[in-house]
Design a protein around this nucleic acid. Sequence first.
RNA 1: CGGGGUGUAGCGCAGUGGCUAGCGCGCUUCGUUCGGGACGAAGAGGUCGGAAGUUCGAAUCUUCUCACCCCGACCA
Length: 567
Amino acid sequence: MRLTQLVSKTLRADPPEAETASHRLMVKAGLIHQVAAGVYAYLPLAWRSLRKIENIIRQEMDAAGSQEILMPTLQPTELWEQTGRRAAFGANLFELEDRRNRPMVLAPTHEEVVTNIVKSNVQSYRDLPVILYQIQTKFRDEPRPRAGLIRVREFAMKDAYSFNSDDASLDASYQAMAQAYRNIYRRCNLPVLMAEADSGAIGGKDSHEFILPTPTGEDTVITCPGCGYTANAEKATAVVPALEPELELPLEEVSTPGVKTIAALAEFLDIPEAKTLKAVFYSGDGAVIFVTIRGDLEVNEVKLKNALHVNELRLATDEEVRAAGLVAGSASPIGIEGIRRVADPSITAGSNFAVGANREDTHLRNANYPRDFDVDDLTDIALAQPGQACAICGATLEATRGVEVGHIFKLGTFFSETLGAMYLDQNGQQQPIIMGCYGIGVGRLLAAAIEQNHDDKGMVFPAPIAPYQVHLVGLNLNDQEVSTASEELYRQLWDNGIETLFDDRLDQAPGVKFNDADLMGLPVRLVVSPRNLAAGVVEIKGRTDDHAEQVPPEGVVEAVSAKLRAA
RNA sequence: CGGGGUGUAGCGCAGUGGCUAGCGCGCUUCGUUCGGGACGAAGAGGUCGGAAGUUCGAAUCUUCUCACCCCGACCA
């Protein structure tokens, strides 16, 4: 491709709306064009890169024994009502009507349709297992699209679905998919972490996320350097360090004027925060929930939501707190009645805690569970944090920010039972098919790759997903010799199957061309110039190399190939 | 949905009631230049997001509306 023919232009200035690196660079280098909030057109450079990612995905999915299909975006709403997911997706579902006023949706995912496909094609255990996949456009009316391609409302997803007759077979499919995913990320040169994850509302027991570490990521992963334990912070568990056992002392009231926070309470009483109990108020499906946890810990809302079995969970509003008769800043579970009380086991990892007295400006010392109060649920709702100890090996946990670029989970039989996808087992018994599902956001993977692979000058494309391998720069192309040599090299590279982008602009200064080459971030840069030609050489430089090397023109193809192999 | 912000040329921005709406980049033509974002000259390019209102007069004031961005609850 010649730069003079490429439709997209690079921008000189950073786009001001782009806060994250991948967004900024993709706009600046002319990869994407925004159409609406969270809706983008992919320009040639992005599209080439996306196709490469898709091809890698296809090869690995095919190799893992899954079969590619293509399902429609447009689906009858009725299908979504059968499984109750119209309500579950709620406002995230794009809904429309056809000309006869029949309700339709733009599908955010494809469990319903794929289950029906399998239902009409699978009758016997002999037909199983089956894994189907597609690379197809999904629509989700996200509350807040953001960060370029990281979070959008229309996006290409590779979604795969496994259908198995028993748990062992499901495990095998799950492992095969997990391995395919590892292969995909490895081939894209992306060091992705596989983390235990929360399985969500309909998920079964196993779920893993694939997280690409990057400081601007939306997710936090807890990792253990000792045993390799890796889990999303939403799911991760850690050992809460127990305090020295003490003799239980009698409750004692203290006046604490103006003390509203755990930090203030600890300071006022001159005790560590771990010697206090924190009270947090939530609203779970409209009802106020009283949550207690040791003062030095934070509540994990995902764990809490799962423990409560509610659909909607949020912090209670001030009005709700007051209406429930609770005293924010001085609350404790002691004497609380008529409100669901949930506590983290950390309240037993110590004794003689300082707590609220449920009266303004008053706290109590020496609160002990279960002596002084009762709870309805005592279950792990603590947010694991770096610095805490690994529950498996005891090593100190670490935290990493990252972007979720894949998610796999075991679905179980929810869809097959709801939609009647059954098979006949060896004993002639009807059984629901056991399902798993496996997703990769293709555009997000590209954005995440750029997020992780860039420097202050621009993108640094991993070679396997770079739109072109070589950026051929002709300096002073008005010089006939340079022009001839560049054109010849350009032809020669393509003849040898090396995808080359040729900066054939006549009148751009060298600085402009170098800056654009750095910005676009192709793996190898070649420079043809009067200076180089006079020395009988062409200059070759990897995107992150400090210095260029010089090779004779006839050795260019070989030198490029060597650089690409090393990349 | 709550909070904050922005809509003026392809892009980035200035313009708080008064002449024909301006600057930088980019773009076109000609010439010079050519190793890290060159220079000169001459040009093209605008329903000032939209609607209604106030006014002799509105980019500017009022009301309504639409869109987009950023921060929080969701997800690939």
